[in-house]
Simulated assay, not measured.
Amino acid sequence: MAPVPSRMQFSVGVVDDDDDLRALVRLTLELSSRYHVVGEAPDAETALAVIEAEVPDIVVLDLGLADIAGHELIPRILDIAGDTRVVVFTGTDPQDQHLSRSTGATDYVVKGDIDHLLAALNQIGDRPPTRATRRFAATPPSVPGARQFLADTCRR
C-alpha cells in the first residue's frame, strides 16, 4: 500500500471582535496539525497590520467588525496579500454570502458550528490556490523577500 501524502500546514489569521470566539477558533485550529494561527485581530486596523506582517495562507474573517464592514476589508486584505484566501465566518444573514464572494471571499460559513468552519478550511486546503501575488517595494532590499515568496509559492 502506497503511503498517504501528508497534508500541508497552513498559516491562518483570525479576525473577530469577540475575544472568546477568536480564542475558540484559534484553539480549534491549533488542535489540528494542519493549521497554525499566526495572528489574531479584533478590528480591521490590527488585521491589516497582522496580514501585512505575516501574510497568512488563510484569513478567517467576521463581517461585523466595529471599525469597518468586513465586505470593505476583504479587498484591502487581497491588495496586501493577493494569494491569501479569505473565509467569512459570521453571524450575519446568509444572504451576505453573495456580497462576500463578489468582494473576493473564498468561502462563507455562518457562525454556530465550528465543525462547519473546519470542514470549509479543509476543503480550501485541499485545493491549490488559483493565483499567487504579493506586492514588493521597487527597491533592492525587497529582492530577498521577493525571492523567498517565489520559492515558497513554487514549493506549495
Rank of each mutant, 00 (worst) to 15 (best):
R134G: 12
Q148H: 04
A49V: 05
D62T: 03
G39I: 00
V50L: 07
D62W: 03
V25Y: 00
C154A: 13
E54V: 08
A138H: 15
E45K: 13
I124N: 09
E40D: 06
G82L: 06
P42H: 01
I124W: 10
P141D: 15
L78S: 01
Q97W: 07
A23Y: 08
A41G: 00
M8F: 07
S11I: 10
F136S: 14
H36M: 10
R26Y: 03
L65H: 04
D152Y: 03
F149M: 08
T90C: 04
G112Q: 10
L65A: 09
P42C: 10
A47H: 10
P94T: 02
V38S: 04
R147N: 13
S6K: 10
D16N: 06
V110H: 09
R22H: 10
D62K: 02
Y35A: 02
Y108I: 05
A138K: 15
R155C: 05
L78I: 08
Q123D: 14
V88M: 11
Y108M: 05
I51F: 07
R76P: 05
L21N: 13
G64F: 03
P42Q: 06
I68L: 14
L27E: 05
D17W: 00
G13R: 02
E54H: 14
L29Q: 01
R76Q: 14
G39F: 00
D57A: 13
D96G: 09
D16E: 06
S32M: 03
G125I: 09
A69W: 08
T106P: 02
V55F: 15
L48P: 02
A138I: 12
L117H: 05
P3T: 06
F149R: 11
G70H: 01
M8A: 12
G64W: 06
G145Q: 12
A2C: 00
S6P: 05
V55R: 14
V4F: 14
V59I: 09
S33D: 10
D79I: 06
D16A: 02
T130Y: 09
D67C: 11
L118K: 09
H98V: 08
T90Q: 03
D126P: 06
G82A: 13
I58N: 00
V86D: 04
R127G: 04
T153M: 08
G104Y: 06
R156K: 09
D115P: 03
P141I: 11
A2G: 02
T130N: 11
P3L: 11
G145P: 05
A2M: 11
G125Y: 08
H36A: 06
V87E: 01
R134H: 13
A137Y: 10
P42T: 14
L121E: 01
D19F: 08
I114K: 00
V14P: 01
V60A: 06
D152C: 07
